[in-house]
Simulated assay, not measured.
Amino acid sequence: MEITGNAALLVVDVQKGFLETERWGARNEPDADARIAALIDGWRASGRPVVFVRHDSAEPGSPLRPGYPGNDFQDYVEERRGQGGGGLLVTKTVNSAFYGTPDLDGWLRAAGIGQLAVVGVQTNMCVETTARMGGNLGYDVLFVLDATYTFDLVGPFGWRLGADALARATAVSLHGGGFARVVRTEEVLGALGAGGGG
């Protein structure tokens, strides 16, 4: 795997509101937080840019609404934001980080960045939507599957899918559809440690 010298890490919606398990239910990937932390640390150590994305929900009662403690980044992310200049903060009210403030696409293009690694919450929601749009916009997107997590979900006709099944569906759609390359944390960290190919 080659990681370009200025590839950006997008850390999507790792917020305290997702810790309210009574609202969200069962999640998958219990080690995702440790992997996200390791990727932020690896990115910072390599001098590459990190973008922190926060969902400012406009839905009344949402645990991600501004002014509510759940809107804040989880502690391990906030601690890392405080190091190395903080990185770019993008806020959004919809599923894609590319429809946020400031303009992510404009910032990436101005910096000459063509490759993105995407991690965060939820796998099949904002992380997937951001990856799909990144692919549509022509970026080389690495979707770090095991550094994301999601929750069981009920859809139409009473259909219910568990978090693992939803994550697999996302991985197949993104990878098989050519939107992103689905990868694992270990191989990404290995590429960073090898210098990433410049």
Rank of each mutant, 00 (worst) to 15 (best):
G198D: 12
T91M: 06
G84F: 11
Q83K: 13
A37R: 03
H55F: 09
V51E: 11
V118G: 01
K92I: 01
E2H: 15
L9S: 04
T101K: 10
S173H: 12
V188P: 10
I40M: 14
G87Y: 09
D103M: 05
D105L: 00
T129I: 05
L10N: 06
V183R: 13
P69V: 11
V12M: 04
G86K: 05
V50P: 00
S46N: 02
V90D: 03
G84Q: 11
R44L: 05
R81C: 09
G17Q: 01
G178P: 09
E22Q: 12
N124C: 07
T93P: 04
G178H: 11
R23E: 09
R27H: 12
Q74S: 15
R81L: 08
N136C: 12
R54S: 11
M125W: 13
S96N: 08
R109M: 00
V183P: 12
D164L: 04
L192T: 01
L189E: 09
P102Q: 02
D33M: 10
N124V: 06
T170M: 06
A171M: 08
G5F: 01
E78S: 14
A169W: 07
Q15G: 01
W107Y: 11
R168Y: 11
V183D: 08
A194S: 15
T129Q: 07
D140L: 12
H55I: 02
I36T: 07
T148D: 02
G195M: 06
A169C: 14
N28G: 03
L108V: 02
Q122F: 09
D41G: 00
V118Y: 08
F18Q: 05
R109I: 00
G138E: 00
P156L: 13
A32P: 05
G195V: 08
S173T: 12
G70H: 09
A117D: 06
Y149I: 03
G106S: 02
R44C: 02
E128Y: 10
V11Q: 08
R27M: 08
V183Q: 13
A169Q: 14
S62V: 01
G100W: 08
Y99Q: 14
V182S: 14
R35Y: 04
L142Q: 15
P102F: 01
I40Q: 09
E186N: 10
T101D: 11
R168N: 10
I40L: 04
M1S: 10
G155W: 14
T129S: 14
L142S: 15
G82V: 01
N71R: 14
A97H: 06
L161H: 14
Y149G: 08
A163D: 04
P156S: 13
G86C: 07
G177C: 07
A180W: 01
R54H: 03
R181P: 02
G176H: 04
A194M: 14
A110P: 02
Y68G: 11
S46C: 05
V11I: 03
Q122I: 12
R181W: 00
G162K: 14
R35E: 05
T148H: 07
W43E: 00
E22N: 11
R44F: 03
G134Q: 05
R80S: 04
